[in-house]
Design a protein around this nucleic acid. Sequence first.
RNA 1: GGGCGGUUAGCUCAGCUGGUUAGAGCGCCUGCCUUACAAGCAGGAGGUCGCAGGUUCGAGUCCUGCACUGCCCACCA
Length: 938
Amino acid sequence: MPHELPKAYEPGAIEARWAEYWIKEKLFSVATPPADAGDAGGGARATSASAQPVFSLLLPPPNVTGNLHMGHMFEQTQMDIIVRWHRMRGFLTLWLPGTDHAGIATQLMVERQLASEGKKRRDLGREKFIERVWEWKKKYGGNITDQMKRLGASVDWDREYFTMDENLSRAVREVFVRLYEEGLIYRGKYIVNWCPRCETAISDLEVKHEDVPGKLWEIRYPVIGTPADKPEFITVATTRPETMLGDTAIAVNIRDERYTHLHGKKVLLPLMEREIPIITDELAQPEFGTGAVKVTPAHDPNDFQAGLRNNLPQIEVMDENARMNQNAGKYAGLDRYEARKQVLADLEAGNFLVGTKDHTLPLGKCDRCATVVEPRLSTQWFIKIAPMAKRAADAVRSGEITIAPENNQQIYLNWMDNIHDWCISRQLWWGHRVPAWHCACGEIVVAREAPAACGKCGGAVEQDADVLDTWFSSGLLPFTTLGWPEKTRDLEVFYPTALMITGFDILFFWLARMIMFGCHFMRGHEQDPAIKASSGWSERKDDAVPFRRVYIHALVRDADRQKMSKTKGNVVDPLDIIARFGTDATRFTLAAMAAPGTDIAFNESRTDGYRAFANKIWNAARFMFMNVDRIADRSPWTPIKADSEILHVGVGGVKTVALEDRWILSRFNRVAADVNDALATYRFHEAANRIYDFFWGEFCDWYLELIKPRLMNEGGSARAEASVACSNLVNLFESSLRLLHPIMPFITEEIWHAMQENKTSIKSIALTAYPQADEKQFDLAAETEMAILQDLIVSVRNLRAELKVETKAKVPIEIFAHEPAIRSLIEQNRGAVERLANVESIAFAGGSLTSKAGARSTARFDVHVIYERKIDVAAECERLKKELERIEKGMTNGQKQLSNEGFLAKAPAAIVENLRKQHQELVVLQEKTLSKMKELGC
RNA sequence: GGGCGGUUAGCUCAGCUGGUUAGAGCGCCUGCCUUACAAGCAGGAGGUCGCAGGUUCGAGUCCUGCACUGCCCACCA
């Protein structure tokens, strides 16, 4: 038989094999359904609606520079669970993968590589450099997708894209041109965030602020025209004294009476000996500092605005590397911090520096390279964001897009409401080049393709040197990957995507931009109505949105809750964890810890525990196969199911001949209900824990133990009983595997295939049906009865431990059942009690057994273990005392509530009834405990 | 400066819309190589749910304040 599995589960070989198989068989590739398909996808999977429901999801494209880290794995695990779950529920499921060219990040990598050869990018020139980046991309860009493949992510690899693919690049140009034509893209000279190391503008989002201790220097500027013997000064404060070299005014507030007499006067800019005016402007706030402020229009965004208001000259004193330029006089050539030192020294020498205060200031640093950002005057391309932001905010406010967990919604809206124009040009070489062409005559042509010549003067044109922000192109992906700007069938079917799962860290960078672009460019788009309806979106009105739902997942941190980072050296490498514990165990860990909204502190010991879970499943499978083989050997009968049976929803074919059958079937259905429920609201941890508890704590610990005698039956009619038990076992096991598959795809695939013995044409468990609860299979009576038996068995085990009965020794017990029904329940399941509690014989007593040593009482029965060993009276008294305390505490609480009229009047009847019942039980138990204590002489 | 979260067993975390005696994994203690699994089985110890008030018949759960802690946003010199 093919069912001889190794004793211990070894994930490595199995996982690699299935990962390859899934790709080779193209199991997750999705063809576009034809437009007229009333019954797309075909018979067995079609639902009551006429069209097959569709579930589409875009993978947040990892950077080509990336290697897989725990955050990716966490994100992908959650997506894969949701995706597999949908696929198994009959959705036509498209999970669309790709990678991002990651402008700055990638350019940085290649520049580093060049640096190791002693070269700079400018040595190569633009074309050669870009060739070099492409080479690099070819070599390393596939790393992360290769790793994804190994994780078993069930994406459609046939549709894999790269953001600089020709069709996507064409779409980027199309978008740029349209926005320009609509007046939503403009070009202008403004203060932008500038990274002196990357030598490019960056957007507000790419600046990370960090509070650092700094200084506030107070500098006095002599007012011109005041008496030489009693000169007057005006004092300003600054955190960046080197910028004073570019000052073109001093501003005071018009309401500030301290300075009224100086309105219209000039000061002499120290060190530069330049006369600059004192102006009145709201820039200066009387409450802050001295109320007077230096104005440097070329180096500060506020000053820039003030400069425009007052027609001030803009004097740039730094170059693109933040070194002082020729406008900085004798400081030219110095680095900005060198210059700062020199300026301060000179100011002090000239007696202009009048104060130095400690001052904590938020320092902006480049997100990529951590260089301190310098506000810089430069000509850039911008998106006029307000109109798009408004629609993007409305899409969320109106519920056309829902964001979970909910608190992220407000964060999103706050950001949208306070948004600034977006600087989209970058002075980089790697990326989508701005589709604008410049002529020497000053004309700029924005076009989809390079014009032959300047339309105005006929001169030669040259393409704009800048490239676009990476997020400009990735913001378009939900529709460009589906064929936009063409009107494709893919867009009709898969757009809007159903869901976006991503991290909080790119909420603004990416998510917000996708919504803005989607709402703008897909306005008027309509999803195929049949598909929209069958997929459950009939109530949504707006099909322009890039996705219907957003789920923001938490962050993975290290075991000490620290953010993982290379510099801290606390990065947990998922591949290393996988090598040690297996992919399934790692996935299960991430799922089990993924409570929405709570960051994960990744802890290996949990993974180790889930590796044990995989092993448990493995061994349960061995047990099953052992029985299948043994039973099948004696007759041609086989419990393995045929295709048609595998596709049913839930468990089929279980014959409920015994209590445990009814019980486990009922429990299975509850788990199925809970798991489906949990997944629908992204409570991955709940789904994982429910399955874990069910499979281990109920299926293995109780069900398998309970059916062993039936399985082992050898002769006569008992043989048929064994077959039924075995068949039940197989059916339940197979359904459990399906239930678990989205979380642990590998081990479930392996065992499932072994169960099929090549008798199925279905290529993967991933293509079977996901178990749904069948209400007819809920059996409350069985659950209650089973709970009583478990209670009895555990009580006896307890007593045995207390009495220190040798493990192997069987003991006789007596039971007093409070009701005849309890007695008959126990009688009917006598064998189970005897086996699982190691009992020799069961006698039924006619009255209370509480007076006996070695007895336990519950509200339904007393049980007495008959054993000559004297119990430790002191220890037993101690236990009883604790027990009594617990009981009486419960009674006091109950009494208090039951005598409270407010409670009786206002609490739901069921709660009151429960409490009454519980209180009555406590009364019985108290009495029993007390009499027992008396007996023992406690 | 604004906003958001966290604080529950030795450790890492659950506990959804307030309702029986607050749970799990790991670790710890005791006993078992029981014919699927020692990566296992059986049993056990361990918590005044950060602090102080409040709402309620009833609070780990809701409200207020405080403490500690983490994160995000922010052009105030």
